[in-house]
Design a protein around this nucleic acid. Structure first.
Ligand code: FES
Ligand code: FES
Lengths: 141, 141
DNA sequence: TTAATTGATACTATATTAATATCAATTAAA
DNA sequence: TTTAATTGATATTAATATAGTATCAATTAA
């Protein structure tokens, strides 16, 4: 069971690169080469993130992508939702015959509780936090 | 992001059917039709569960599958591991260039902590618990 | 004017998940 | 003893999701 797919993984790495140089434009090319991400793949991810207002861009020479917002407002949960769809355990485990009434189903609530746990754990992990962790790790010998 | 795939979902339903009639043999056919599971697909899942000693079987006429063990000893975590592989967030998010030393990487530990949370939450959900929840839900009008 | 860039989108490849099919071995029952 | 109902083992196909590549138009700083 793979929790983060490549696109989420790549997106996180790209955002970290942008957050580290916050306020400056970085080209897709430089982000790709420096972080081992396939160039065209990365471009699609960046464009998707623009659509979701996580980053901004400037076309043309000297253009690129830039992080404007506070990296602490971008969580892994958001990225999972963008690239892997909303966290959901199972559409509906027992439908018609066995369960009958979704509304009151204890089991369903149980399952949804876990969804919440997963989601809130990933919400705590923001790009800002990751960046600080990374800086901290770099210091140690 | 889909946490439970069809095979895990189907496996859970089949185990609930078997747990509800614990000690008796149920045929794959009856489990399939009563729970809306594709017959041949289910058979493969049942055989896989036999290999993992979750259930037993008897060949021939009047044969079938049976649950011998305590349903409380079968957790959703086990089923996820069997049918979707071990819970893992991402192989390694930042490899060589950025991180360099997996062993001490703060970030990696952060991520692994979440894996633990996910896993332990699903460990609490056993077939026994689900069965009781289901029975409880059935009582209410 | 041009080269470096992003925007948009189409395409291919690979892997995973889901489903079906086949035939041999077993066994209770007719 | 024959037969029908079953599981065991395994091969095959179909559908979907993930990953990666390619192309060309639009923009813009130099
Ligand atoms: S799990 Fe879907 S209605 Fe109970
Ligand atoms: S995340 Fe892999 S070494 Fe840090």
């Amino acid at each position: 069971m793979k929790v983060l797919t490549k696109n989420t993984d790549y997106a996180i790495r790209a955002l970290l690169a942008l957050a580290a140089k916050k306020g400056r434009y970085l080209s897709a090319k430089s982000i790709a080469t420096e972080n081992d991400i396939p160039y065209q793949f990365l471009r699609r991810l960046l464009q998707e993130m623009i659509r979701h207002d996580l980053i901004v861009s400037k076309e043309g020479v000297q253009g690129g992508f830039m992080m404007e917002k506070d990296p602490d407002t971008i969580s892994v949960t958001q990225l999972i939702e963008i690239f892997q769809g909303k966290v959901q355990v199972s559409e509906c485990m027992f439908r018609k015959q066995i369960c009958g009434n979704r509304a009151r189903c204890v089991l369903r609530h149980e399952i949804m509780r876990i969804e919440q746990v997963v989601q809130s754990e990933f919400e705590k992990v923001t790009i800002g936090k990751l960046l600080r962790d990374l800086a901290g790790a770099a210091l140690k010998p």
